[in-house]
Design a protein around this nucleic acid. Structure first.
Length: 355
DNA sequence: CGTCTTTGACCGGCGC
DNA sequence: GCGCCGGTCAAAGACG
């Protein structure tokens, strides 16, 4: 399936985008963000004033979250980019606030439940507390403590969800390469959507990271990828030394160099910063992106090997011209190797996003 | 032969 | 309790 997609995709177009409901009236809003309805607390939308968890998804370091969120803000004005941060473990209140904010404009879609359930849960929670209070009044102290203990035990049994991070990409490929090796373990039809959702697990032993990939039913050109958990190992591609490794050496953008998994970000996202990759090993490679990512698609332990070739774009057609605002951003993407500069530029750039 | 995908069955949470 | 739904399992098949 994935191979078919790879083959047919000659010009898969990725533009990392950033969802920001405060600033842009992009056609893709939270009401067409088709996430499951059962993971109530885990999924939401990035508000660049509120996000707190993306870095946790990367390496559990909240310091870099800000930098990263700014990095995403860099592409804020791109009309094609949406991303979402989900963190079950931290800042639930903030997440609830995010979801409640979104809830006001959510109408009907498969993700309606996502947005509304948090509120429902709040209501439920308070109802439960009320009920609990009434019952407590009727019970003696021993019974009360027993019940509390039981509740605690039940709560403890429930597995906490790993932090999640979701983003949308405009691509003909369903399963985007990100430097890690994934095994597909399931596929389900998505309610109200003709496009199935695929479930992937990281193939590295003891790594529990999962990934969901589905196509937006409202805009089939958009692929929604959701990462869950944090890799407990190096990115295979990083070990070989490649552009991702270059990123991992940047303390300002991706945190400490040794354990960062920059390729938790989509490879194409990186490509926005590193314009040209050329594959050294051509025999089994396939073209992944318009902007010069050749990626080895050999599934048999042949991890991708790149030759980084900054600044040249000879082999593939250039992407369609971005709108003026995005063009301005694109220029900023041209010198990512100077992270300090990038970092310094971002706040002022972000300011330009304000209406 | 090892790895990966496919796909129907199964499970648990939730709403009614 | 039942049905729906999302998520996962695992056997079978495909592939190089």
């Amino acid at each position: 399936m994935a191979n078919e997609d790879h083959n047919k995709d000659q010009f898969h177009h990725f533009e990392p985008f950033y969802y920001n409901n405060n600033h842009h009236g992009h056609e893709l809003n939270q009401s067409n963000f088709p996430f499951s309805s059962q993971n109530h607390h885990q999924e939401g939308f990035i508000d660049n004033n509120i996000i707190t968890s993306f870095s946790d998804c990367l390496h559990g370091n909240s310091m870099d979250y800000n930098t990263l969120s700014r990095a995403f803000d860099l592409s804020c004005s791109s009309p094609e980019v949406i991303s979402s941060s989900i963190d079950d473990n931290n800042n639930k209140k903030q997440q609830q606030q995010i979801l409640l904010n979104h809830n006001s404009s959510v109408s009907s879609s498969s993700n309606e439940a996502d947005a509304s359930v948090t509120e429902e849960d709040s209501a439920k929670s308070s109802k439960k507390h009320e009920k609990q209070d009434q019952e407590d009044e009727e019970e003696d102290e021993d019974a009360k403590s027993k019940k509390e203990n039981n509740n605690k035990a039940k709560k403890k049994e429930k597995k906490p969800r790993e932090p999640r991070f979701a983003f949308m990409t405009k691509s003909e490929i369903d399963h985007l390469e990100d430097g890690y090796r994934w095994r597909k373990y399931g596929q389900k039809a998505v309610k109200n959507s003709p496009y199935p959702r695929s479930y992937y697990r990281c193939t590295t032993q003891k790594c529990i990271v999962k990934k969901r990939v589905e196509r937006s039913y409202q805009d089939p050109s958009i692929v929604i990828t959701t990462y869950e958990g944090q890799h407990n190992h190096h990115c295979p591609a990083t070990l070989r030394g490649n552009a991702a490794a270059m990123f991992s050496s940047s303390p300002s953008l991706f945190g400490s160099p040794s354990l960062i998994r920059p390729t938790t970000l989509p490879q194409d996202f990186l490509s926005q910063f590193l314009p040209t990759y050329t594959n050294n090993n051509n025999n089994n490679s396939h073209q992944l992106a318009h902007n010069n990512i050749n990626y080895n698609n050999n599934n048999h332990n042949q991890n991708p090997i790149f030759q980084l070739n900054l600044g040249h774009n000879h082999h593939y057609p250039p992407p369609p011209p971005p709108p003026p605002q995005a063009q301005q951003q694109h220029q900023l993407h041209q010198f990512p190797h100077d992270y300090g500069l990038l970092h310094d530029l971002l706040p002022s750039f972000q300011g330009k996003q304000e209406p």
